[in-house]
């Protein structure tokens, strides 16, 4: 692959990802409206499809205010760090066998985990730099929640890695030719899904923002495009987790009849819709319930999954 083609691929992927994340804000509000028996945004453009554009224009023209009591440098750095880590995470996602920026990287899954763990900084630093009690509380909740759920996120992927004998995401998809990993790794799938929601701090696990007790949590002091970056990074995070679920558990681009790209987009899109459905259907747990559930339920389940998967591989492997 030449350098020029590689750069083109990166630019196209980033553009597609950002427009998908922005468009997702409209999709989410329409779907929520549908499930809650109301219209949702339907005035701007046909069916309200231009709502995301209107929101973007509004955010761009708002005053970009930095509070005088904030830590200026870190305050600006925090949303940028969140955006950058999420977008870097896309580098290892293989859209098809031949279309990925670094899908063959032999530590692909670890790269993804590294980027999600660095993403915690944006929330934590945003909360700290705002120099505001609510923001600080949100940042501290985020730190504890995301560090805890990172552990299960890593552990829940171990079974998949063991079955595929590789950390490379292309190899993992190729290993699902006979059966999607969601069948033998159902526990891994469920724990990864829960950890993914907690990592993107989405409803029902959006305790860092918890608007009924913390104002808006870590981004209380943010306005204009800096808030927009937090906002879009969250949606890009959903797209990232959904693509990871597609790649790791739903067979990636594999599928009959339709071309591979369509299969990938279809699976990812349905997973995203499932994320939105969870938001519409479930109430938010209390913070201590969230942490307790993580350490007392998910951790043993993940370890059990790893042990059982290992035993099954040893039992059924031809070399014994």
């Amino acid at each position: 692959m030449t350098l020029g083609f590689g750069i083109l691929e990166i630019v196209v992927s980033l553009a597609a990802m950002l427009s998908a994340a922005a468009g997702l804000t409209w999709v989410e509000r329409r779907l929520l409206g549908f499930w809650q028996d109301r219209a949702g945004p339907n005035r701007v453009g046909p069916f309200g499809t231009l709502q995301a554009v209107a929101d973007g224009v509004k955010l761009l023209f708002k005053q970009d205010w930095i509070p005088p009591f904030a830590d200026r440098g870190v305050f600006i750095l925090a949303p940028a760090a969140g955006m950058a880590t999420v977008l870097l995470g896309f580098a290892v996602i293989p859209v098809t066998a031949g279309w990925s920026v670094a899908g063959h990287l032999n530590v692909g899954i670890l790269f993804f985990l590294a980027m999600t763990s660095l993403g915690v900084y944006s929330v934590v630093l945003g909360g700290w730099a705002s120099n505001n009690k609510f923001a600080l509380l949100g940042g501290m909740r985020a730190a504890a929640q995301m560090v805890s759920y990172e552990v299960f996120m890593g552990l829940s992927l171990l079974g998949t890695v063991m079955l595929a004998h590789s950390f490379s995401l292309v190899d993992i998809v190729m290993a699902q030719g006979r059966m999607w990993f969601i069948v033998p790794q159902f526990l891994g799938f469920v724990t990864f899904l829960l950890a993914g929601i907690a990592e993107t701090h989405r409803l029902p696990f959006d305790l860092p923002e918890g608007e009924n007790e913390l104002g808006a949590g870590f981004h209380t002091e943010y306005s204009g495009m800096k808030f927009g970056m937090f906002f879009i990074a969250e949606y890009a995070g959903i797209v990232l987790i959904a693509s990871m679920i597609t790649t790791l558990f739903l067979g990636g681009w594999l599928g009959p009849v339709l071309p591979p790209v369509v299969w990938f987009l279809l699976k990812t899109g349905l997973t995203i819709c499932f994320f939105i459905l969870l938001r519409a259907a479930l109430p938010r747990p209390r913070y201590d319930q969230l942490m307790m559930f993580g350490w007392k339920v998910l951790l043993p389940v993940c370890l059990l999954n790893v042990a059982v998967t290992g035993a099954a591989i040893l039992l059924f492997s031809p070399t014994g």
Binding site: F111, L118, W128, G139, M140, E150
Partner: peptide, 20 residues
């Protein structure tokens, strides 16, 4: 990868947490 996940992504977050 482990350096980033464990040191930069987990241990340093806890340091920041305590300082906060």
């Amino acid at each position: 990868a482990l350096e980033v996940i464990i040191y930069a992504g987990a241990i340093m977050i806890l340091f920041v947490f305590v300082v906060m």
